[in-house]
């Protein structure tokens, strides 16, 4: 194995600074004791974290986002798993078109999806409802679930199922005892990635929320476009810490590289 030279390591250090810098700044700013943004902060204070508690707007929005993420990731997983089984292992005409359809939300610009959903939901009079949000989010995040489940379905040695059949297992037993457990990492990974994507989603959501269903990213966005104060930094810090915790959890049980890049060695 050729190792990295001195310049490579310097490049890597600068790159790390570039990636981490903006996040460190947000976290740093949130600890300021003053009423304005300053970095590095002149002291360490938790006053802006305490301020979150006085702003039920943010807390309500966080709850909406949490519930929305869980509901939409679950809906998406329920429809994507059987679809992945069909696409991954059956040969049928229309298979590729179907796969392209299910992955298309990745290619259509999100702003286009946003107005399309807005148009539909206003016709159905579901605009701003939680159900509407869940269904629209399910569409956006299904590609992520599908991809991860598909890669575990395709990566599975089918003779394992044949072995179970030859030992007398019925179709349902094969699915429950063999197939499901073997594609479980893909399902769990897909669900988590879908949850995070839904939790962070802004562009589509901004078109289809109303004040009672405002999500955290939308709340943050409308706050930032009006003013940037230490409060927004402290809320963002909480979001960063929550995501990092979730990330470490995934990395522990699934591997972040596998989650984001598919099967790697």
């Amino acid at each position: 194995m050729i190792s990295n030279g001195r310049y490579s390591l310097l490049f890597n250090a600068l790159f790390t600074l570039f990636m981490v810098g903006p996040l460190v700044v947000v976290i740093g700013v949130s600890f300021t004791p003053t009423g304005y943004l300053e970095f590095p902060p002149s002291g360490l204070s938790l006053r802006w974290f305490a301020a979150i508690l006085d702003n039920p707007d943010f807390i309500d929005a966080a709850w909406v986002s949490l519930k929305l993420g869980i509901a939409s990731a679950t809906v998406s997983t329920i429809v994507a798993v059987p679809a992945a089984l069909a696409i991954g292992r059956e040969k049928f005409s229309g298979r590729e078109a179907l796969q392209a359809l299910f992955l298309s939300p990745l290619t259509v610009p999100t702003v286009v999806l946003g107005i399309a959903f807005l148009r539909l939901l206003s016709v159905l009079e579901l605009n701003g409802t939680f159900v509407g949000l869940v269904l629209c989010h399910a569409i956006i995040i299904t590609p992520f679930v599908l991809r991860l489940v598909l890669s575990s379905v395709v990566g599975m040695d089918r003779s394992i199922e044949k072995a179970a059949i030859s030992l007398g297992a019925s179709n349902w037993t094969v699915f429950r005892r063999i197939t499901m457990p073997l594609i479980m990492p893909g399902i769990v990974g897909g669900w988590v990635l879908a949850f995070i994507t839904s939790f962070d989603e802004l562009t589509v959501t901004v078109f289809i929320v109303n004040p009672s269903t405002t999500t955290l990213p939308v709340r943050l966005f409308s706050h930032i476009t009006q003013t940037t104060d230490p409060l927004i930094a402290s809320v963002s810090t909480v979001v960063i810490l929550f995501t990092v915790a979730l990330m470490l959890l995934i990395n522990r049980f699934y591997g972040l590289d596998r989650l984001l890049m598919g099967e790697t060695k």
């Binding site: 040695d157 003779s159 394992i160 044949k162 072995a163 179970a164 059949i165 030859s166 030992l167 007398g168 297992a169 019925s170 063999i178 457990p181 073997l182």
Partner: peptide
């Protein structure tokens, strides 16, 4: 059907249940 034939099969990849 295959599951009722009661044959013992050893597969090339062994096809052990990894879990």
């Amino acid at each position: 059907p295959a599951r009722k034939r009661g044959l013992g099969i050893v597969f090339q990849t062994y096809a052990l249940f990894p879990h």
